[in-house]
Amino acid sequence: MPAAISPSRDAVARLKPGAPKPRLTRAEKAEATRARLFEAAIEIVGEMGYAAASVALITARAKVAQGTFYNYFESRQDLLDQLLPSLSLRLHALIRQRVMEAPDDAIEREKARLAGFFEFLEKEPHLFKIISEGTVQAPKGFRAHLEMQSASYRRALEYERRRGNLLIDDPLEIDILSQMLISTREYLSGRFCYEDGQFVRPSADVVDTYEKLLRGRIYK
């Protein structure tokens, strides 16, 4: 079975109707097929939930023969467990870029992480449903996603600690803080980024109030 990697969207685009169709190598064709199956699964889970994401529906959406599915994934559950880790890699890449673009200030970098998360949800609106059902329907993938995001946040906080930007130093407290920040952004996204199941751009007040919390400007 091929290694579980995040499928390239370029591979999907190459096989879309109307797109240029250069001669592809066998490996490129395989990558493109796997990517189409992957993107179809993301769409179906995001629209209808994990329970509706049958192999038949995924392959029909991807326009791939049903038997071909098992050339790329061991089972339906294998594919579903790979969705969140793959999206987690995409999320990390976008947030990392936004943090690098932010002013050289710890709180500005943290604001960039929250704003970047909202931006990612606008690009990938299915993420919220995939996360919310993932704890039950794809626990292996959910745990991998959570650990990837936790590790990313711990690295970010450790970077700030080394630069003298954190008031805490204990590794356990840093780990707890990383979970608090991850939970905060996911709760805020559920509260302010969706209306009637559709993504809406959250008000700038959300990030501004988050900054007040970070700077200790809430209580007298």
Rank of each mutant, 00 (worst) to 15 (best):
L146C: 07
H92R: 13
G46F: 05
A138E: 09
A53G: 06
Q97T: 08
D170R: 15
L87V: 05
D205M: 12
L146G: 06
R98G: 07
L214C: 11
L167E: 15
E133S: 02
F199K: 01
R26S: 13
G18Q: 14
L167A: 15
M1K: 08
N165D: 12
E28P: 02
E43M: 05
L94I: 08
L15K: 08
L24N: 01
E43I: 06
L91K: 12
K212F: 01
D175M: 05
A35N: 12
I5H: 03
V45N: 04
K129I: 09
S6M: 11
A13N: 13
Y153G: 00
R9W: 14
T184H: 10
P125S: 03
Q137D: 12
G216W: 09
S203C: 04
G134Y: 00
P20S: 11
I174T: 06
D105S: 14
Y153V: 00
V55E: 10
M1I: 10
A151Y: 06
E31Q: 13
P139D: 03
F192M: 06
E101S: 10
I58P: 02
R61M: 11
L214W: 03
S54Q: 13
E28D: 11
G141V: 05
P20A: 13
A56L: 11
L188D: 06
Q179W: 09
L24F: 02
R217N: 10
M1F: 08
V12F: 09
K16Y: 04
P2I: 07
L91G: 03
S86Y: 00
M148S: 08
Q66P: 04
Y70A: 08
Y153F: 02
G134S: 01
G116R: 01
I176S: 03
E173A: 15
L24T: 03
A3Y: 07
L166N: 08
